[in-house]
Simulated scan of single mutants.
Amino acid sequence: MTTHAYTKELQLARLAVQRAALLTKRLLSEVDKGSFDKVDATPVTIADFAAQASIIAAIHHTFPTDQIVGEEDSTALRQDSVLLERTWDLARSVHLDDEASEAMLYTPSTKDEMLTLIDLGAQGNAGRSGRTWTLDPVDGTATFMRGQQYAVCLSLIVDGEQVVGVLGCPNLLSDRRVAEELVDKDGYGQMLSAVVGHGVTIQPLGTGKLLDGTMLPGVSQVEDPKEVRFIDTQASETANLEVHGKAAALLGCAWPNPVDLWSAQMRYVAIAVGACNAFVKVPLKDSYRSKIWDHSGGMLLAAELGVKITDLAGNDVDCGLGRTLAGCHGMVVAPASIHGQVLEAVRVARQS
């Protein structure tokens, strides 16, 4: 096993994500997902709450002084006894079947402790100093509800820089084909992880100790703009798809790509496994800023494979500005060799 400065953190993150992924898989087998709508109209399920509690329990137990930024808070659970009971049952019932692996994690012992752990994530902020874990317990909740692609995401940011990223993809096939409807029905999906400076590993998700993985090759450093293969989501309500299409036309590349994924983090996964090699996000509103948990970790995977990531002005993405990528208006994600051409195409498309 390769050792590095974050060996312990990576091991814990992988195990925590694997357990949370199993938790979400268990809920997928139920007909009633216990869902309701949040204020922003995004569907949420007890899987979001239980997975957040499960991951934070493990991280906080081992690294009690680290900041944690999670998407959910416990307000809705505190107001709904049925959802609370179901979340509690799910959070405490899923364990890894390897005792040594499970012993590295932690499970809340009471409902109140579970609620407190969830709120640790809601109260956290990423800064430019210190250590902060960011997590999205279910990135792509809408597609999760349909049994399609989603990701359980965890990353570690140190002094504003991503250093560890782990994405569990419970429905990703072992042959690495990516589409919403191509779902792993026989296994537990795949997990991708990265440590800064050490590349990207993919390994099957399992039920116990971590399974062996393989290193992913870097992305092809294409120079012909026709070789850009964008991924997008045609269902987006926050992105200017017209500009996306114009940028692709300027480059002379195909658009839209047959690979269309709702989950933001799964788009980084699609790049990592070779289903595409780029994406852009031009927000409809100038005020729009992405949530940090929708990108941290996934960005590290892409960067480790030779992808450059900037905002629409060509600036690097700053992960030390709180709960959003506050200094980042839009995104351009492409192989380093052609990122400049993609960035220019987006600039021209926005002005046309």
Rank of each mutant, 00 (worst) to 15 (best):
S174W: 06
L300I: 09
A302G: 00
L167S: 04
E304N: 11
Y6D: 02
V178C: 10
I46V: 15
I202D: 12
S296C: 13
D159S: 09
K38I: 10
Y106V: 03
T75M: 10
D175C: 07
G168Y: 02
S236V: 07
R78H: 00
H4Y: 04
H61T: 05
D66A: 15
S109D: 13
M215S: 14
R347M: 02
V280R: 04
R78S: 05
A249T: 11
A122P: 00
V195S: 11
A345S: 14
L117A: 08
G245C: 08
V31I: 11
L22G: 15
V280F: 04
A194T: 13
D119V: 00
N125W: 06
G322Q: 12
A21H: 07
Q162P: 06
W262H: 12
A58P: 06
L12S: 06
V228R: 03
T87M: 08
T134W: 02
P108D: 07
A53I: 03
K291F: 02
A248T: 05
D139W: 04
A313L: 13
D66F: 15
S129L: 09
Q18D: 04
V200G: 09
M114Y: 01
G245H: 10
I202F: 03
L192D: 07
E71C: 03
A270P: 10
S220M: 13
E72M: 00
L105H: 11
L321H: 12
G298A: 01
E161G: 00
A122M: 00
G130S: 08
A91V: 13
G206F: 13
A334D: 09
A21M: 04
L216T: 06
G147C: 07
D212I: 06
T107H: 10
R14P: 00
A249S: 14
L84Q: 13
A326N: 10
L83V: 11
L154V: 14
K25M: 11
D294A: 03
Q11P: 01
A53V: 06
A100L: 10
Q351G: 01
G147E: 07
L343N: 10
N315A: 14
K281E: 15
D186G: 12
F49L: 01
G206V: 05
S193Y: 04
S287K: 09
G199F: 01
H60E: 03
D32P: 02
M1G: 09
L173H: 12
H198R: 13
D311W: 06
R347C: 05
L120M: 09
D66K: 03
L325K: 12
A103G: 04
P256H: 09
M215V: 08
A16G: 09
P108R: 03
W293Y: 15
V158I: 14
A302I: 01
A58T: 01
L172E: 01
V195W: 02
H60R: 11
G213H: 10
L27Q: 13
K8W: 05
D212Y: 04
